[in-house]
Design a protein around this nucleic acid. Structure first.
Length: 489
RNA sequence: GCCCCUGUCGUCUAGUCCGGUCCAGGACGCCAGGUUCUCAUCCUGGAAACACGGGUUCGAAUCCCGUCAGGGGUACCA
């Protein structure tokens, strides 16, 4: 309330954009929007070994897809840039010098070999694994002299005595004894800074007021707090989000085992981004005991960090399907048409630039299947029968076809009867069909099932007379006769 | 091992701060019934939870302690 809110989403570009990352971005965005603040994207790419450009692109594209483009970031720039840590090294180095002169860090001359040997000894002795602070004991002047002499060194956090309190917006007060905070390396041999130092420098220099990130950073926070204190900087507020767990079984959501961990997976399946966002929003947060469906503006108006849940959330894909289906059902037909077309094209069911005839058919299919779709890609399996040259029969449909011994005769007679009928209005067609069945002493159900099977190869689908209209007279007659021939007689 | 976080129906959650109105509410999923030419939708009903053990109290899902379980961290990764 005092200073304008500035929040940031700070992923490291080492893989795909994780759903959990998307949620973190959303929560940050929501906090910014509801207070007229600024939402920043910063790429945490200080680990040059693991970063890839492809990953940077998936982050941009993923955020764009769900409508969470940042106000300031690598692509859009801003007053506090650059927004990639790899481009901020000069700042880091001068700040690291200052940290050293303030005594916030001390030079360490231990070699990697020495360190890993120490670690192994600690593991063997079943004792806490932590740097033993050997170099902390070196007198400051002596250490500085060795640095000046060119001896390789790293800079380690000089953790003070006492304890550190983190007033977390979600978790409440978390208190840690400083002896449990390790003197971690903040500056590598050669002068490159490490994540824990870069975040603090950046968050401070970018004017970040609220650090909202995953709980996996909770322990890091104590080290970062020490740095804020050593620099004499005001600390931002922290909120650590619960983690997202795998949908079934144990463990967290890992990209290797769970494809649904990647945001891209949802995009490929064709979930509407607004539905996905609504679902993600409810992962670890709720407005009250009833609200489920929310527009983006409602989320902005209602969101509050205080109502974020503390415990980890498991992914519930069935709920996403339900929610997505609900969104799709309420969409205007034109949107459905536009969304399903690329999937039909990709499946080779319609041509890349559909002709008038195909467009007409796509519209009819969209209208007929809208109520059944949970994501756009489902259109292919749901409506494949419309575009297929030959009808492929499901087992159940085949059974419906041959339930009566005189099925073939019925289908042929029905096909013949169709000749004089108008296909424009399904209702008119239906009343004709009912009468037609009645005249032959057949129940409506006796003809509906075999006809559906003959026309679509399926046992379920849109209303039978919508099916008629979608297919058109010629295709209906052809399919009825083909089915009759297939079952013989 | 050590440090930290968490623990309400299968899942997401409301309720927990300010003990009684909670023999615990909603949603998804599931089961049954209804509507319908099938499926989907829609409507009605149902099964389903306060991790466990001790306290405190007239009274605890709510407060305290312990146990157990799950998760995170423990790198010259982020």
């Amino acid at each position: 309330m005092t200073s304008p809110v500035r929040v940031r989403f700070a992923p490291s570009p080492t893989g795909y954009l994780h759903v959990g990352g998307a949620r973190t971005a959303l929560f940050n965005y929501l906090v910014a929007r509801q207070s007229g603040g600024t939402y920043i994207l910063r790429l945490e790419d200080t680990d040059t070994e693991r970063n890839t450009d492809a990953s940077v692109r998936t982050i941009y594209e993923g955020l764009r897809w769900i409508g969470l483009d940042p106000d300031e970031g690598p692509e859009q720039g801003g007053p506090k840039g650059p927004y990639r840590q790899s481009e901020r090294d000069a700042l880091y180095r001068s700040l690291a010098d200052e940290l050293l002169s303030r005594g916030g860090v001390y030079p360490c001359f231990c070699t990697k070999e020495h360190l890993s040997a120490m670690r192994e000894r600690q593991i063997a002795a079943r004792v806490t694994q932590r740097y033993d602070r050997t170099c902390r004991a070196i007198p400051r002047d002596a250490a500085l002299a060795r640095v000046k002499a060119g001896e390789p060194y790293t800079l380690r956090l000089n953790v003070p005595e006492g304890e550190t309190l983190l007033p977390d917006l979600i978790r409440g007060d978390v208190l840690v004894k400083n002896e449990d905070i390790e003197d971690i390396i903040l500056v590598r041999t050669g002068g490159a800074v490490v994540y824990n130092l870069a975040v603090v420098f950046d968050d401070h220099h970018m004017g970040v007021t609220h650090v909202i990130r995953g709980e996996d950073h909770l322990t890091n926070t104590f080290k970062q707090l020490c740095i804020y204190d050593a620099m004499g900087w005001e600390r931002p507020k922290f909120a650590h989000l619960p983690l997202i767990l795998a949908p079934a079984g144990e463990g967290k959501l890992s990209k290797r085992k769970h494809p649904e961990a990647a945001l891209e997976w949802y995009q490929k399946k064709g979930y509407p981004p607004e539905a996905l966002l609504n679902w993600i929003c409810l992962l670890g947060w709720s407005y009250d005991d009833k609200t489920e469906i929310m527009t983006r503006d409602e989320m902005i108006a209602r969101f509050s960090i205080e109502r974020i849940v503390k415990s980890g959330a498991r992914l519930n894909l069935e709920k996403l399907d339900w929610m997505s289906g609900d969104y799709i059902r309420r969409m205007p037909l034109e949107r459905v048409v536009a969304e399903i077309t690329p999937y039909l094209v990709e499946a080779g069911l319609v041509s890349a630039s559909p002709n008038a005839d195909e467009i007409e058919k796509i519209r009819a299919v969209a209208a007929a299947e809208q109520g059944r779709l949970r994501c756009w890609s489902q259109i292919v399996e749901l409506a494949g029968w419309v575009f297929a040259k030959d009808v492929a029969f499901e087992a159940k449909a085949e059974a419906n076809l041959t339930k009566r011994p005189d099925s073939a005769d019925i289908l042929r007679a029905y096909a013949a009867g169709l000749a004089g009928q108008s296909f424009d209005d399904p209702k008119v067609l239906e009343s004709w069909a009912r009468a037609w069945a009645g005249e032959r002493g057949l129940g409506f159900g006796d003809i509906v099932h075999p006809i559906r099977a003959a026309l679509t190869g399926r046992a379920q689908g849109p209303g039978l007379f919508d099916v008629h209209r979608i297919l058109g007279r010629a295709a209906c007659v052809a399919r009825l006769e083909a089915a009759a021939a297939k079952i013989g007689g």
